[in-house]
Design a protein around this nucleic acid. Sequence first.
DNA 1: AAGAAGTTGTTGCATTTGCAACGGAGGATA
DNA 2: TATCCTCCGTTGCAAATGCAACAACTTCTT
Lengths: 224, 224
Amino acid sequence: MDKKFFMLEKCLLFNGIKTEDIEASLHYLGFSIKNYKKDEIILLAGNKMARLGIILAGQVDIDKEDALGNRSIVTQIWPGEIFAEAIVCAAEASPVTVVAATDAKVIFLSIQMLLTGDEEVPAFCARLVSNLLKILSYKNIELNRKIEYLSLRTIREKILAYLLAQHKSTGKNPFTIPFDRNQLAAYLCVDRSAMSRELGRMRDEKIVKFKKNLFTLNKKILLE
Amino acid sequence: MDKKFFMLEKCLLFNGIKTEDIEASLHYLGFSIKNYKKDEIILLAGNKMARLGIILAGQVDIDKEDALGNRSIVTQIWPGEIFAEAIVCAAEASPVTVVAATDAKVIFLSIQMLLTGDEEVPAFCARLVSNLLKILSYKNIELNRKIEYLSLRTIREKILAYLLAQHKSTGKNPFTIPFDRNQLAAYLCVDRSAMSRELGRMRDEKIVKFKKNLFTLNKKILLE
DNA sequence: AAGAAGTTGTTGCATTTGCAACGGAGGATA
DNA sequence: TATCCTCCGTTGCAAATGCAACAACTTCTT
């Protein structure tokens, strides 16, 4: 198997598929690979797309921009994760913009033949489809989590909800977050300076300590 | 075919499946039916679920409640629409609470056998799975739309974004919305009185006219 | 070393928002 | 009719927020 495909074995889409079948399915799905420079746009909001993408290397942001130009980060994705699967399955225009947050390598796959269910298809396809179902379900739940943050009324609540979730998912207490301040504000959809002010207050009240991307939540907060 | 299943023919999950196969698949999926009174809880946030639900009659709200008890409506669903599909596929706890907004009738289906892809399954299953993929994709896009409203910074922007989308999806200009004021505020995650104040200002500025649930957007706004 | 560019925190200020409380309109019921 | 209840709008006020501008600090480039 080609070296550059090794990481696909860890990709949820190919979970349960034999190593030798992975490359076969790539060819079956008419793959192509493309490189992007940092900040290059991979998919612009409003466009349709016929193929889903899998990040092979680098980091990619899923963004949304409002009429006033406020950029908000919907989510980040990493090597092994896929994007555009929903708009391919639904044949709709993308509600989001996909941007390379660093230099990135992406592989694209046509999955039309998996969607109709009436053609004669190779054996591994059933597994691909059920993996796709699972991925879409996880993303659904992820979007619900995002909505949870955004539906909170104050910046402090949003920050706390995010930090608690981050603490929980890492299982550590001094823990790092994958955002710098600008990005965190964009993710929580609040003003950066207002967020910074609130973070300062929370530090004064000893709710949280932080230095760059390393955060420590007060133990009393964690007891709830 | 049993009369009470007629409406399932219009359900996206059974799209493309022959009428005689629908009842067969219901039995294959071990269906059961349950009635709910208005305000009764169908699924509580934090719980897991092994079966997805389809609304046969009535109206159902997908809710979320924050630590302070603020209720927000994530979305509404109507007869023919399904819920809990994501948490069944992902085998995760529900991030939302499902509540009967009116008296409602729900049919539950076990879909485990559709997910593994290795068992011997009836012919219609492939179609069920690809329909499920499409539904999950649509919901994904719907959640993105919701995030779009919530990421806007001011109440006015949220109201406008919602009304424009509602106008677009109905294709009419005096158009009705499916929420009363309380529900709309809960959907947009803002304070009801603050929303009411903003609606009043927007009426003063002749941006929108409204009477109960009937809204009319100013033509100048629609030209963008 | 110098300068440029990016990141983070700070502050003043106008505006927006949440909150609480109240009142009126309209519907349902006894 | 009287009463209760729900829905909707209104208002005063304190607090939160967005915005703009600036300063301190780091990183990178030249």
